[in-house]
Computed example of a mutant assay.
Amino acid sequence: MPLSAEVHDTAAERLAGLLRQRYRADPPAVDAPWSAAIDAILDHRSARAYLPGALPEGTLELLIAAAQSAPTSSNLQAWSVVAVSDPDHKARLAKLAGPNAQINEAPLFLVWIADLARARAIAGQYGVPGDGLDYIESFLLAALDAALAAQNAVVAADSLGLGTCYIGAIRNHPEAVAAELGLPPEAIAVFGLTVGKPDLARASDVKPRLPQASVLHRERYGASTRPDELAAYNGALRQFQAEQKMAPIDWTEQVSRRIGTSAALKGRERLTEVLRRLGFKLL
């Protein structure tokens, strides 16, 4: 059923507002229908402060059902997730990831696993060596599958009024994390995800993103580092930082610091050798 003119105008205004919020600039021209899913996605912001109390019964299972509804390469479903809610268990993982206070504060911490162990076991049941698992393609497939699944869970959480935040620092000490979670060979934690009811008194706003012209290429890759666009984005992010009472830094400087030296990777520069010790051959 087509939208009435009044409803269409309201939806169009809502969409334009969400886009303006995301880019902190005049929104791209989008003449498309609004939906609740688009609303949840465009309004996403990371939650780093949570209210006490467990999640409603069934929430975890619903988030995992959403995760399992994501696409998966060749239907291999080469991921797993470990749900951690025990305070002592979360505290040990938080120490390995920082320390990280929000892991302790969130009622639920999901650790997403690039998991080739299940496929290896199935290969053994069929009496085949599973040589295809030995290549970097298979590890990449598993990591991508985990990311796709987790992002589905994030969108589902947003739609339920929950907050989430990805924790890449779970890769700082991958062998210790694997031992903490009892992971088998050929399984590694690729990132964590805090989940909980966000504390709105300490809520973050929607963080602006690069202009679409910096990331959207049509037909062929074009220039993606135009100085004027990057300068405008630095300004938008500085405004966000001031509003959030964050230390001011240009995005371009932040990028240069993050990738400037191997030490900035905080131990993750050794990930290839760690993966091999955890059973991945990476041929």
Results as ranks from 00 to 15, higher is better:
residue 2 P to T: 05
residue 4 S to E: 10
residue 11 A to R: 04
residue 14 R to F: 03
residue 22 R to M: 06
residue 22 R to S: 03
residue 22 R to Y: 01
residue 23 Y to A: 05
residue 23 Y to D: 00
residue 28 P to Q: 07
residue 30 V to H: 06
residue 33 P to G: 06
residue 35 S to V: 04
residue 39 D to C: 05
residue 39 D to E: 10
residue 39 D to V: 05
residue 46 S to N: 10
residue 48 R to P: 02
residue 52 P to H: 14
residue 53 G to L: 08
residue 54 A to T: 14
residue 57 E to D: 15
residue 59 T to I: 14
residue 62 L to M: 13
residue 71 P to C: 05
residue 76 L to N: 10
residue 82 V to C: 02
residue 86 D to M: 06
residue 91 A to M: 07
residue 93 L to K: 00
residue 93 L to C: 04
residue 94 A to R: 01
residue 95 K to Y: 00
residue 96 L to R: 01
residue 98 G to I: 04
residue 108 L to K: 01
residue 112 W to Q: 04
residue 119 A to M: 13
residue 128 V to I: 12
residue 129 P to D: 08
residue 130 G to S: 08
residue 131 D to Y: 11
residue 137 E to K: 12
residue 150 A to W: 00
residue 150 A to V: 07
residue 158 D to M: 05
residue 158 D to G: 01
residue 161 G to I: 04
residue 163 G to K: 00
residue 165 C to A: 14
residue 165 C to W: 02
residue 166 Y to W: 13
residue 172 N to K: 06
residue 179 A to Y: 07
residue 181 L to T: 06
residue 183 L to G: 01
residue 183 L to N: 05
residue 186 E to N: 13
residue 190 V to E: 03
residue 194 T to L: 03
residue 194 T to G: 01
residue 195 V to Q: 00
residue 200 L to I: 15
residue 205 D to Y: 04
residue 206 V to Q: 00
residue 209 R to F: 07
residue 212 Q to M: 13
residue 221 Y to T: 08
residue 238 R to Y: 13
residue 248 P to R: 12
residue 251 W to P: 06
residue 252 T to S: 15
residue 252 T to L: 14
residue 262 S to N: 12
residue 264 A to M: 10
residue 268 R to L: 07
residue 275 L to A: 09
residue 279 G to T: 10
